[in-house]
């Protein structure tokens, strides 16, 4: 193949690749509906199971923010597995790499697609908490809640993509991924839960007390987005 008749391809720049990969992942999701038909119902059933286990309206109302984010973490594990199962099924990831597609672009693209799906998931979980666990939402709380949701999902998507890429193609990846991922996302669980508590006004925590936690989430998201974009190439280059 000569260079002259090769069309200018958006996949040669990092941003172009990222956009293509993200669009491809979301298109795969739109057509397969795995998120809609499997992950979201799973998250819902987890929320119902929490209610069975805790068995008290007062307790549920008190721990609702934590349950939202726990369910989000469990679902993230499934979504990350799914995101990379698509890539490794036919050796697609290896082919992308050997075609010279920049790893950073793949990382950013997959991260964006994952984040988009996580935003849908977390939105649904928060609505579930409002309906099932009687969480209260105020206008000031909503602003905090939306920012928290976006920042936390950004961090989760970054770490998920990074460790998902590492576990992809490895033997026993289903068991390896939770072991690697859960300890790393502990700060997200702590930060997002506390910020959501402020947004809901759980235990009389005011909205203002949630913003420092948002700072923690932002630091996490930035650190792991940047280090993920840098480390993804060396992790894949086998």
């Amino acid at each position: 193949m000569s260079n002259a008749d090769q069309p200018r391809f958006a996949g040669t720049t990092v941003i172009g690749t990222a956009r293509l990969i993200a669009a491809k992942d979301l298109r795969v999701e739109l057509r397969s509906r795995v998120l809609l038909n499997q992950v979201l119902p799973f998250a819902l059933i987890v929320m119902v199971m929490f209610a069975f286990a805790l068995d008290s309206d007062a307790v549920l109302e008190r721990v609702a923010p934590g349950l939202v984010w726990l369910a989000a973490l469990f679902s993230t594990l499934i979504m990350v597995s799914r995101s990379f199962a698509v890539e490794t099924a036919d050796g697609a990831l290896d082919q992308l790499r050997s075609a010279g597609v920049p790893a950073m672009g793949i990382f950013i693209g997959k991260m964006m697609a994952l984040m988009a799906q996580l935003v849908v998931l977390v939105t649904l979980l928060i609505l579930t908490a409002v309906v099932l666990y009687r969480a209260e939402l105020s206008w000031a709380g909503s602003v905090l809640l939306v920012t928290t949701g976006l920042t936390a999902t950004c961090g989760l998507a970054a770490v998920g993509t990074l460790y998902g890429g590492l576990a992809a193609g490895a033997k026993g990846r289903e068991t390896l991924l939770p072991l690697l991922l859960l300890p790393v996302v502990a700060p997200v669980l702590i930060g997002a839960t506390r910020a959501t508590e402020s947004a809901f006004g759980t235990r009389g925590v005011s909205t203002g007390q949630g913003w420092p936690w948002l700072g923690l989430l932002a630091v996490f998201a930035v650190l792991f987005s940047v280090s993920g974009a840098v480390a993804f190439g060396p992790l894949l280059d086998d």
């Binding site: 502990a186 506390r194 007390q209 792991f224 480390a231 280059d237």
Partner: peptide
């Protein structure tokens, strides 16, 4: 392959641990 993979993970752990520590300190103190 093993060496590269595990060294990247080891360095990510160096990044992770202070964050975990900081968030736990923040959690406990508040």
């Amino acid at each position: 392959q093993r060496a590269r993979r595990s060294s990247v993970i080891a360095l990510l752990a160096v990044l992770e641990i202070p964050l975990v520590h900081f968030s736990v300190v923040m959690w406990r103190s508040l």
